[in-house]
Structures are given as structure tokens and as C-alpha cells.
Design a protein around this nucleic acid. Structure first.
Lengths: 347, 347
DNA sequence: TTGTACGCGTTATCAC
DNA sequence: GTGATAACGCGTACAA
């Protein structure tokens, strides 16, 4: 009579009831319970109600590990990133969690070190060991094609976040950084700026390249010169932004505006300007990229390009979760310019 | 002959070899393989070597879902937080990941909304559904005793991060905010400041209370007055910091120094000062708390209290993973003052 | 529409 | 030391 897992007496404090308990109490087979859980259409309405009430009464929750074993796939989605910037990572997590809210999916995070020679091996071990449903790749490591290839080889789903079309639409969610920066630069030009400096991002970053090209396109389109003295490269950090600004300030005549390829470098530019007593925006206009909190919290509040990372993250997660409808999720997102106080017409 | 899971021909691209495959190839039982994996001491050295070589050859990796099912516990540790601040969350993740590197544990993140009336129910659902090994609680939700009680009820391990002794040593990793703030305040006093304002944190936050009391202790110890006109409350955001500063500036005489209970509010204070053309540090000294990136990136670079969050996170994770040795991990950490340019003697 | 029997990959029991 | 055999909790053929 007593099925496995059954405990007839009220003594044992239930270590989570199982599907067997539900079946026994409801007086049906385990399979029927399983059908109720998985919303099988061919099911007598009465038995469904009965089973559902027993489920509620017992507080039954399916064991995800057992499900994973039987289905030969689990419900964990991984977030692989190389900490491009804390706020961005967290915003991304937020978007993913919006997408998987009220599903059985969970998000596991995994920072990786893109400079480590065995980064790829580390990721492989991680994927083999955890057998994730799929992974989300954040820039800059999302630009690594070998990583995508590894996922394919391991049969692990993946979606990449990027600044451009890096993969087919079912595997990418991209912002169009080039267009956004072109528009930001044209905004400066329309205000009357002619000498505009660029703090470019590091070599090897696709985002850096896209942003630089957007900048150059705008300058070229308006016939503005943009020699090497107007371009300085940083590595997306505050300090390199400061150093890059120092170099741009040497240009003669000095630029009246600077576009920095991310906010952190823009903050560095601002500090360099302050040390030289160049006032922003009166003597120097400044635009950043990312709209991280720092942009709004420094003085003057900084004009910057905001990309809709939460929506992008949500779309990426949905693509991953519903591989068949992956193409229904938008693959391209537009960034917009957040106008604050760091931009003014040239002196 | 052919055991389950065996594929004798080279045709099928192996969807991960199982323990059965290893056992068959090595010519032993799967229990023996299991013993090798779990480093059972009673094992013939020869058979161990043989099995190990087969494991390597086949590239066998144990399936964590199957292990979880058999062991009735998985190897997922959860991070519950209410985004106190992006950098802090990410630093915490970093510390946890240091601790679980090269283990089979993985980190799953779960933001919660502490303002939602059914926060507790959400967490309960999450824990029941995912059946985590244990969870790490970040402030401010770590201060919620009902949450800790819930974990105990559900048999889910937990470790809380806090600003004070909130739980017994095996369930807490705490910084001593009170001492740190007292020291920071005394630093101001030693420089000669007598009128010192406090931007306190929000009601209901233990950290806010601890920091406030540290401040008051220092003031009292040196016989300094600290009336209500010298205390303004904010809610740990930039904007409330700015507003609090406005109120403090009304005090007569105006304070020559301000301690803000976190960096974000301190940045708000700085902005308010700038709008009033009160120069920092010449006319106003300022100290923050947390040492988030913004502290170093604003102007002037800000003196602040840094707590060793990465080490704390590591300790918390180790406590969770090794419940028996939990007490061996330190439960208390000291914060230190990072001296930058926002503090000077009073005018 | 519902139930039976078995598989998923691992660990635990208890013989040998 | 080692190996059958039975759990663990759930899903799927296939039969009823």
C-alpha cells in the first residue's frame, strides 16, 4: 500500500513532498500528476482540479534536479562576463531576471578573465561541469568567436550581446553603437563645434571600433578634419581617459568638444579639464557613452549615450529560453542621447 | 554485453560519457568509479590509476544534476540582494567566486524587492523551487530576521552580511561600521573640526544606525555638540544626499566638515557644495563610506571608509560551503579609512 | 483520458 | 577492496 516516499504518520517533518506523495493522496498515478504540472491538454478537468488542490494542500514543488535529469537538460542559464563595468553587468542581470521571472529558470553568473591564456579552457570546464541550458555572453568577451564556437561544440545554447552584428539574429542582441555615436557627434557639430576630439576605446574591442567609426563618419560627412592629434586611445578606464585628455589638450587649436567612448573615460576627461582649469561646458563640451550612474552624479551632469541594456538583456534571455522563437525577439536596439549639462555651443 | 549508455561504434558523437561508460571501458563496476571520483580511501591504488586514466581518456565529467538527485542536495549557492549598489554587489560576487573556484559550486543570483509586500513569499518560492545548497544575504535584506528564519525553516543554509552582529558567528560575516565611523569622525576632530554634520542613512537600516552611532560616540567622547541641525537623513541615494546637504548648510554656524553615510550621498553633498560655491576641502571637509569607484573619480577625490568586501564575501561563501568549519572563518572584519583629497583642516 | 514500466546518471546499502 | 541492486524524483513509450 505504502508507496515509496510515503510517510503515513504526521511525525516526519516533510522534507518536501514528491510527486509520489501527490499521486497517492490524490488517488491517481504519478503520470497524471506529471501531466497536470506540464499542462497536458488531454486531461479530465475534474482530475486536474483534484490534483491541483492536492498540490496546493501539500505545498508540492517539483524537484528541478530530478526534472533536469529526466529531461536531460536543466534550467540554468549562465552569464559569462569580464566585468566591463559593474552597473552594466547588474543592469543586464536585472533584464535577464525580468525575462525569467515566474519561470523555473535561474541565473548563474560566471566572471571570466579574458586575459588569461586558458580562458577558453576554463569556460569549457565550466560548461562541461555545469551543463547549463545556455549562456549569455557580455561584451567584450561576447566578441570572441572561439567562445561562440565552443558553445556550439558543447551543444550549449548561447546569445551574444554586442555593438554590431556578430552572429546570426538568433544568437545576437546588438546595439548600433556606430549610429548612436554618429548622431551624438552630429549634435556637437550642429551646435557649431568644428574641432572635436575623440577618446577612443581599446584596440580589439568591437565596441571601440564601432564608436570610433561612427565618430569618423560624422566628421567626414561634414567635411571636418580629424587628424591624429584629435584622437587619443584609452582602455575604458578613468585613468586612461584622463591621460587621453591630456594629449588632446595639446592639440592646437585645442578641441572645443570631446567625445569619450565610455563614461568612465569621460569622467577622466572631466577631471583633466578641471586640473587645467578648462571649464565644462563653457570652454569644452563633453559627451560620454553608457549612461552609468557616474554620468549623472558628477559636475556638470554629463551628456551621454544610453543604450537600453535592460531591454536588450530581456530579449537576449528570451531568445535563449525560446530557441524556436528566437528570431521573434528583436536583435537590434537603438541607443539614444541623454542631454545633460556638459554640452554647450563652442566659445 | 552492451550496457546502457554504451555506444560501441564511433558513429554517435558522445553526448557526454557517463559513469557507465567509464566503468565499462575500465572493466570495473560503476560503484568503483564513483569511489574514485569521491576519493574513497579504501581503494586499490592500481584500480584507481586505471579508472583515472579512463576518465581522462573519455573526458568524463560527472553530471551535477544526477549527483544532486542522489545526494539530495545540489551545489548551487544563491546570492540574495536588493542592489544596495552595483559595485558592492559585483565585488561580493567576485569574492564568492574566489571561494568556489575549482569546486563544483556555482553561484546563482537573485535580486529581490525589499519593498514588495510579498518579498518573503517570493523568496520562499524561489528557495522551494531551486532547492539551493544555501544562500548569501546582502545588506540591507540581510538585516531581515524573518528571512533568516525562513531559511532555517526550509532547511536552507545561509550566511548574512551585516554591519553588526546580527546572528551567531556561523551565520554572519560582519564589518564593524560603528568603529570605522568613530575613527573617521575622530580623524576630522583631530584636524581641528568642531562643527561636523552627519548625513545619516535611512531608518530601518542597521548600517545606517551603526554609522550614526559611531559618529555620535566620537562627538560625545570629545564633548562636541551635535544637535538636530547637524544631522540630516537621506536614503543612500545621490539626490537625498544633495538635499540633506542643503539642510546642513542652513546650520549656523555652518559645519566645516560632513560625514555622509555612503559615497553616493557624499557625492550629492559635493554637488550641493559646488552649487553653493562652497569649496571642498578648503571650506568643507567631506568623508564618505564604501569606497565605490565614484569616490575616486569625482573632484576632489574623496576620503572614504573602505570595507574589505571581497574578503568578507570569500569568508561568507566558505562558511556556507563548510558548515562544520563555519566558525573557523572570521566573522568580523575591520574597515579602514582611505585618505584622499576631500579632507583638510578647518578654515 | 489514465496507468505501467522503465530510463536518466549518480550515490548508498550490504553483501561477497 | 569490490560489485550487484536499489534508491533519488521525474518524464516518456506504450499499453489499457
Amino acid at each position: 500500500m505504502a508507496l515509496s516516499g510515503g510517510r503515513e504518520n504526521g511525525r516526519t517533518r516533510d522534507p518536501q513532498p514528491t510527486i509520489n506523495d501527490v499521486a497517492r493522496v490524490a488517488g491517481v498515478s504519478k503520470k497524471t500528476v506529471s501531466r497536470v504540472i506540464n499542462r497536458s491538454p488531454l486531461l479530465n478537468e475534474e482530475t486536474r482540479k483534484k490534483v491541483e488542490s492536492v498540490i496546493a494542500e501539500l505545498g508540492y514543488v517539483p524537484n528541478p534536479q530530478a526534472r533536469a535529469l529526466a529531461l536531460r537538460r536543466n534550467f540554468l542559464i549562465g552569464l559569462l562576463h569580464d566585468n566591463p563595468n559593474a552597473q552594466m553587468v547588474l543592469n543586464f542581470q536585472e533584464g535577464v531576471l525580468e525575462a525569467i521571472r515566474d519561470t523555473e529558470f535561474a541565473l548563474v553568473v560566471r566572471p571570466v578573465d579574458r586575459h588569461s591564456p586558458d580562458m577558453l579552457e576554463d569556460v569549457r570546464k565550466f560548461l562541461e561541469q555545469q551543463r547549463l541550458f545556455g549562456v549569455l555572453l557580455l561584451p567584450p568577451i561576447s566578441e570572441n568567436d572561439a567562445l561562440a564556437e565552443l558553445c556550439r561544440e558543447l551543444g550549449c545554447g548561447y546569445v551574444r550581446m554586442g555593438s554590431a552584428q556578430l552572429d546570426d539574429d538568433s544568437h545576437i542582441v546588438a546595439s548600433n553603437d556606430r549610429d548612436a555615436v554618429r548622431a551624438a557627434t552630429e549634435y556637437l557639430i550642429e551646435l557649431g563645434h568644428r574641432r572635436i576630439g575623440l577618446v577612443a576605446g581599446p584596440d580589439g574591442f568591437r565596441s571601440a571600433r564601432e564608436r570610433q567609426e561612427g565618430f569618423l563618419e560624422a566628421m567626414a560627412k561634414h567635411g571636418l578634419a580629424c587628424g591624429p592629434e584629435l584622437i587619443a586611445r584609452g582602455s575604458y578606464t578613468f585613468e586612461t581617459g584622463r591621460a587621453a585628455a591630456e594629449r588632446l589638450f595639446e592639440a592646437n587649436p585645442r578641441p572645443t568638444a570631446i567625445f569619450a567612448s565610455n563614461d568612465e573615460m569621460a569622467a577622466g576627461v572631466l577631471q583633466a579639464a578641471r586640473q587645467r582649469e578648462i571649464s565644462v561646458p563653457e570652454e569644452l563640451s563633453l559627451i560620454g557613452f553608457d549612461d552609468t550612474p557616474i554620468a549623472a552624479h558628477i559636475w556638470p551632469p554629463m551628456t551621454t549615450v544610453r543604450w537600453p541594456i535592460v531591454s536588450m538583456a530581456r530579449a537576449a534571455a528570451l531568445k535563449l529560453i525560446h530557441p524556436l522563437d528566437a528570431e521573434k525577439q528583436p536583435a537590434h536596439f537603438l541607443s539614444d542621447l541623454v542631454r545633460r549639462a556638459s554640452v554647450a555651443p563652442p566659445p
